[in-house]
Design a protein around this nucleic acid. Sequence first.
DNA 1: GCTATGATCATA
DNA 2: ATGATCATAGCA
Length: 164
Amino acid sequence: MKILNRKFYAQDTVDVARNLLGKVLVFGDKQGTITEVEAYLGDDDPACHAFGRLTERKKIFFGPPGIAYVFLAYGMHWCFNVITEPVGKAGCVLIQGINDTFGPGRISKLFGFNGEHNGLDITSGPITICEGSHDFDIEITPRIGLSQAVDWPLRFVAKQANMI
DNA sequence: GCTATGATCATA
DNA sequence: ATGATCATAGCA
């Protein structure tokens, strides 16, 4: 399978999110088709972790693209993100759905993600994303589960795909 | 050093 | 609708 190169991630966050649909997330022996993603823009996005004051944790948003950003939400659930856009620009894509499994927390539980995977290079590390099917429609909806900027249409869902 | 809070999920 | 549960941020 063809692994997505860094150039793929160095695009506009929305484009990356769009293109990420139908791709295959690979981690060790496990793999699954990405069916649902969300774009987080950083600079202008109040809901993004990169919004506001720059902190140690947020620096990864401004670093090189193609990096895994894993964070713990509510003390229980790890969420898996991919850093997008070139160095100096904040942006990331939250992987929300894999195959039939929905919810960022569930995915990380399935794949066994934890804090150690934060900052990994997903163009060369144990975690990679490969090319997949293009045979599906993309549905764009407002984001969910947020407290701010909820109405922004930055959620992308693969509709009725011919999955691998 | 201590406290508040959050891109969630499971349960009632 | 509400509780579980902990890494990070912000402040004393």
